[in-house]
Design a protein around this nucleic acid. Structure first.
Lengths: 151, 151
DNA sequence: CATATTCCTACTAAAAGAGTAGGATTTGTC
DNA sequence: GACAAATCCTACTCTTTTAGTAGGAATATG
């Protein structure tokens, strides 16, 4: 499994904030309740999003969180990358530049690199806005049965 | 991480067999040595490949394993699927037909389904032969710098 | 019959995943 | 100023997965 509940819930939270946050701050208890998730667990997840600069927060009564940008300016890639740490499908694909010592002679490395790129490319192409708009064509592409013939 | 050492080593073993297995059986100790991996661990991994019908085996002296088909007839998808069990990027994407109870109203599901399809599609498009031939164009596609301009 | 091999079962240590628990701090409202 | 509702912070725990190890039985070959 490449994306754990942490990343998944983080995305759910972002979607919820995008939907409810038009005017003002949304509290975590509100989100936890409507998504039916553990508030305590969400607390630890939203902390990552907040520290990563994805949100604005306000403490105290009537406080909460809201997005710091427009939904169309968040890619799914950056949200998941922040919460998961890495989205690499294997251990041998690491951070920028760093690579396995056997890289030069490894015949399977191009496969993993290609897979990594395909994933990254897909996730960079989808924004929070696409999700709240239910843009199935963009998300499911040629695999979407209700989107008509692919061009 | 979507693919563990189990799947990675399984692929390595398959590549090694494809390279060495032209005429006759190759022993595990041979593979373990040339790939510098634990023979005991590989034993448990190759058992999965063997039971899955990917290999022919011969016990006793001079025994070993060999591919049961031509390298071009193995997709990377089936090798990894067999050893990893699933390649789904998230828990909410399950086996054929089965789906999460919230599926009907889940706004992020199309994203995960799309991601799953992109991964599956990529891995089904690459064969063992592509790897032993070092077909970088197919594996890295538009991301391959040494492959010339993408068409 | 000795040796090299696959085959089989069981075990273990470390890491990651999925939360829980408890309380400190901040801020708006009465 | 007290209270309530919220974020913020640290630490802990239980379960599952990962990555192997260990020991030996069965089976071919020379």
């Amino acid at each position: 499994m490449m994306v754990s509940t942490k990343g998944r819930y983080a995305l759910t939270v972002m979607v919820d904030l995008a939907r409810k946050g038009e005017n003002g701050y949304v509290s975590l208890s509100d989100i936890a309740e409507s998504e039916n998730l553990s508030m305590k667990y969400l607390e630890s997840i939203i902390a990552i999003l907040n520290k990563g600069g994805m949100l604005r927060s306000l403490r105290g009564k009537n406080g909460g969180y809201k997005l710091s940008r427009d939904p169309k300016d968040y890619t799914i890639n950056e949200i998941l990358l922040l919460t998961e740490g890495t989205l690499a499908p294997v251990n041998c694909i690491m951070q920028e530049g760093v690579q396995c010592e056997k890289a030069a002679t490894c015949s399977t490395l191009p496969l993993w690199a290609g897979l990594d790129k395909v994933i990254e490319n897909y996730l960079k192409g989808i924004t929070l806005e696409d999700i709240i708009n239910g843009n199935r064509k963009k998300m499911l592409g040629e695999y979407c049965e209700s989107c008509g013939p692919a061009e």
